[in-house]
Each structure stands twice: as C-alpha cells, then as structure tokens.
Design a protein around this nucleic acid. Sequence first.
DNA 1: CCTTTTACATACACCATTGTATGGATAGCG
DNA 2: CGCTATCCATACAATGGTGTATGTAAAAGG
Lengths: 207, 207
Amino acid sequence: MARRTKAEAAATREALLDAAEEVFLEKGVARTSLEQIARHADMTRGAIYWHFRNKADLFQAMLQRVRIPFQELVEEIGDPSVTERPLEAIRLACLKGFERLEQPRYRRVHAILIHHCEVFGDIDPLTMQNEIAEEACGALTDYFVCAARQGHLRPGLNPEVAGELLQAMLGGLFHDWLRNHERFSIVERGTLLLDAQLELMRAPASG
Amino acid sequence: MARRTKAEAAATREALLDAAEEVFLEKGVARTSLEQIARHADMTRGAIYWHFRNKADLFQAMLQRVRIPFQELVEEIGDPSVTERPLEAIRLACLKGFERLEQPRYRRVHAILIHHCEVFGDIDPLTMQNEIAEEACGALTDYFVCAARQGHLRPGLNPEVAGELLQAMLGGLFHDWLRNHERFSIVERGTLLLDAQLELMRAPASG
DNA sequence: CCTTTTACATACACCATTGTATGGATAGCG
DNA sequence: CGCTATCCATACAATGGTGTATGTAAAAGG
C-alpha cells in the first residue's frame, strides 16, 4: 500500500476510532482484538500500531473526542439570568446534557465507558466515573445552595441532600438508558423525571 | 493428590467461588484467568474444570449464591400492617436492601456484576441488570399506586413517575456506592436520601 | 476387602492475540 | 528532481490462556 496524504492519514485515524466505538459497543472492550477493529475499518493492525501505541492508547483517544465538562453545559445556555434562577439553570443544563447524550458518538462512548469495559492496562474507567460523578454532584449542590439562599427550595430540604438526590437520580437514569437506548428516549423521560423531581424540590408558591 | 470426602469437595467448590469473587473484583472478570483463581484458592485448574464446565459456568454459580428477589425483601419485614402504609413498606424494604448490600458477599458480587464484567460467553450482565431494574421499578410503582389510592402521595405526583424516580435514584446510589464502597456507608447515606425523597413525595399532613 | 467412582493434579496440544521487525510506495520538501 | 520521512501492509516470534486427556490415590459402596 502506498503512503497517504496528511489529510487521508488523519481520516484513517478517525475511521479507526469510529470502528473502535462500534466494535467496543457490540463486543465489549476486553473481547475485541485490534485485528477486529482494523478489519472493521478496512485496515490492518499496522495502521492501528502506527497511530496508537496499543489498545489502551486507542481507548483514551476515543474518550478524548467526547470529554464533556459539566460546567460547559451551563455556559452553553448563554442566558445570563440563570444566576437569579438556579433551579432553572439546573434544568436547562440537564436538558442540554440529555440532547448531547442522544448524539450517537456521545451515547456510544458513554455506554462503553459505563457498561462495556473493565479495568485494563493503566486505564480505570471507575476512577473516571468517580471524577465525573463528583464534579456533577458538586456543581448541582452549588446551585441548590444558591437556590436555598434565595428561598426557592422547599423548606426542610437540605441543599446538599438535594444535590446528592438529583445526582443519584440522573446517574441512575443515564445508567438505565445507556444499557439499551431503544427502550425509551432519554430526552423525553429525562425531561419528565427531571421536571417532576424539581417540582417536588421547589418551594411551594408563596401567597 | 488424594481424593477428598464429599464435604471437603463441597468446601473446595465454595473456596473456588470465594476466590473467584475476590480476583474478579480486583482484576475484572475478563482479565482474570482460571489459573489465577485456582492459585488464589490454593488449587489448580483441574479443580475448577471438575466443578465447573468453564469460566461462564463458574460465573453463573457465583451469581447463584446471592440472587435477591426484591419481593422477598418486603416479605422479610414480616409486618402485616405494611399493606396499609405502602410508603412505609417501601422504606423498610429499601433499608433491608441496604443492609443486605453491606454484607461482603452481596456487595462484591453486585460490584462485579455492575462494574467489573463485560459480556462474555453466553452471559450478558446488562440483560440481568435490566431484569433487576424492571422488577424493582414495577414493585415500587405498585406500592406507589397503592399509596396514591389511599391519598398518601403528594397531589400532582403521578405514582408511575414516582416509581421511576425512586428506582432511578436508588440505582444511581447503588451504582455510585459499588464503585468504591469505602467512600460512604450505604446504610447511612441510603437512609438519609431515601427518607428525604419519601418526605418530598409524601402528601403533606392534612388538618 | 475388593472394585469402582470420585476429586482432583499434571501434562499436552491448540489457538488467539500481541508487539515488533521489515518492506514498500509515495507525499512532502528542499 | 531527488531524498527522506511518512503511512501503512505483511511477516514473524513470543506469550498466555483454554480445553482435554491422562494419572492417581483415596473415599464410597457392596
């Protein structure tokens, strides 16, 4: 085979990552060989070992394409009035997250990370999940604290408890949905459950 | 090596399952060889292939030791008055579940099932998780429907939504805790979050 | 007490996967 | 236009794991 142009080389790298996503999701990370990934992209293992050092390196590159910091979702709302209505900020950020997850690439990679891979090499998906969960929980709690100060939270509901509650609920929902995404729409059920939960947490209209 | 008595043979079988739990939890199912399990139990692969057909069979036997039907937790309460107070029935059943999970064997096996294994052989842990989730969600919803009929549920809260909400929250909580159980006590935080959530869902005291 | 079956240990053949070494053709660059 | 680094295919050796076949000593059973 002949040498490709730089653009073509970059394209095969992406193609390899695409193939990895699909095969990982179908067979699980541990049970898929580099050969299978290469063949699925109409390449050989030579291409993989050129672009990546080994399977773990390929895996990390795959994750790199979909890294979502939670705070970024809030910033994407672009509405400056959200600081005055923290519960609405939470709501909109979560809705953004639901829509993100519906995109095939995000959905696939997160499903792989949560359901289709074990520890291997120097990669520990559980540690990654921990970091994501902690970050999400912390951000949610901050907004709930803010909401409590403004009297928007139901009396008697500790804002930290509220943060942990919502984080657990969202985590369980993602977990369920990523197991097989065809059972329900994450946007639909997510919106339904999120609104119900926030309604329970919101302070009753005064007056 | 000499032949063992029937009791000794049964003991080695249990020892092999114990060893499998520990090694699976530490290294992940896919990355552990039968040799490692055997050596961890001071045996050889011969013992494993005598008691089990292969790795998948060993894995299923391991699961068999901890199978918990949710309904059984409710029955364990033994209090006949729970039908009159469905929310209290949910509460007590969940608390039972928390205590169960704290036992090392239950904790380890569930952690393996959720976090440390992929599809392999004819075993699909995701299908098992689906079944468990569906069963739990169904049972919870039944109780919430019952609670709604008796006016114990907060007005405007759909009982089915309540069931899905609580199931998602509990699922997320288990998921988080099983990731590493040393970060917090499942009984403590579980009780805290469960009570907070049920308090939000309960109809306000009338009169 | 003798035979058979049990409960393993040991040994062997086989396969899949990995990492690397090598080859080759062309794109990029001076 | 020629040189070299790039991009990938092919070939090779090494490894680790699986399943099975065989050995064996003692427990079960009569």
